[in-house]
């Protein structure tokens, strides 16, 4: 797999091959990932899949941004964005 770009809330974010969605977002200066059901901003915290603070939505599923590899053309939105935003 090579690097590429994925869509983050409608904006293109570049990633290098093998990078997680969360690491690529951090590289692009995105720290606040969205809001949890209680309305609080979410973020990369533990980096190991334990805290569930980094949940984002990929293809309708909630996944941990710190665990999930970025893929070219992937559409990723904040967990509180119900509908996928078209690129």
């Amino acid at each position: 797999m090579t690097g590429g770009t994925f869509s983050w809330n409608g904006r293109d974010v570049a990633f290098r091959a093998g990078e997680s969605i969360g690491a690529a977002l951090a590289g692009a200066g995105v720290d606040a990932l969205g809001h949890d059901p209680a309305g609080r901003a979410t973020r990369w915290f533990c980096g190991i899949g334990a805290c569930q603070n980094c949940l984002v939505r990929v293809g309708g599923r909630l996944v941990e941004a710190c665990l999930t590899p970025a893929e070219d053309g992937l559409v990723v939105v904040s967990a509180d964005v119900a509908e996928e935003i078209d690129r």
Binding site: R16, S20, A23, G27, A41, G47, C66
Partner: peptide, 24 residues
Amino acid sequence: WELPGVTTAGGLQVMMKETGRIPE
């Protein structure tokens, strides 16, 4: 402690190990 921009030290470290980069 719950704010974006606040991580665990290990969480920052694994990001550095994975990407070879330290966030700005």
